[in-house]
């Protein structure tokens, strides 16, 4: 059974179509890049998979069952914008996650936080933006789930933070789970992807194994993407 399957998903806001007939299957043990320019429907698709939006029509199945309370337990989601309460300390945030999620591995999170030389009593509002983004990623990756969905994890971070984020993703990847990473910054991330999905104007226009696509086109995924979507 596929980990995730989208069947004929349509989604529109006020009659304006955003997603048109999205069909995709995500197996276990893969890192998948959901690639597209801004405003092409990536975040809408991700919110649908996370059951935060409801499709106009179509079906989204996680482990064969329609998304809902059960799927939320096994999907860990990093939204584009941070949702942490900045008045809380790191420790309070960890307790909050422990309360909220059965599968939150607090020891793992503490270790990763320690690696960053962060004091557990630090208030989130006192941390730099880069540190806040790292903390958020640690929290998301410290849940033992089957599917991780990271929406633009590299948006606006410096190169050192980018390397940290890529390392953290790779370090926490295991073959029983899959990771979907949405981004428009392809060259930074393409090396760690198994598969790529190109999304444009609400449609999936290409879906392929990353190395096979490089071999076929003799170019990087970034280059292929740029050629396809030349403005």
């Amino acid at each position: 059974m596929e980990l995730l399957e989208c069947k004929h998903i349509y989604k529109g806001y006020d009659k304006k179509p955003v997603l048109k007939d999205i069909n995709l299957k995500i197996p276990r043990g893969k890192i998948i890049g959901l690639l597209g320019k801004n405003g092409m429907g990536k975040t809408t698709l991700i919110k649908l998979i996370n059951d935060l939006l409801i499709p106009t029509s179509g079906e989204i199945l996680v482990n064969g069952k329609e998304v809902g309370i059960e799927s939320k337990k096994i999907i860990s989601y990093l939204p584009e914008r941070t949702y942490l309460d900045k008045s809380m300390t790191i420790k309070q945030t960890l307790d909050y996650f422990t309360d909220f999620y059965d599968n939150f591995d607090i020891e793992k999170a503490k270790k990763l936080i320690k690696d960053l030389d962060l004091e557990i009593d630090t208030k989130i509002s006192k941390m730099s933006k880069g540190m806040q983004e790292k903390l958020q990623l640690i929290l998301v990756m410290s849940r033992n789930v089957e599917l991780y969905i990271l929406d633009e994890p590299l948006g606006g971070v410096d190169p050192a933070t980018r390397d940290y984020i890529l390392d953290t993703i790779l370090n926490n990847f295991n073959e029983d789970a899959s990771i979907i990473i949405s981004t428009h910054l392809i060259s930074d991330i393409e090396r760690i992807l198994d598969e790529v999905i190109f999304i444009d104007k609400g449609k999936i226009i290409l879906s392929s194994d990353a190395d096979k696509l490089r071999e076929k086109e003799n170019s990087s995924i970034d280059e292929i993407f740029r050629r396809m979507f030349k403005c």
């Binding site: 090396r191 190395d211 490089r214 990087s220 280059e223």
Partner: peptide, 11 residues
């Protein structure tokens, strides 16, 4: 060291 133009596994 890799370049992204060729399959990573081959490199």
């Amino acid at each position: 060291i890799f370049d992204n133009d060729r399959p990573i596994y081959i490199q």
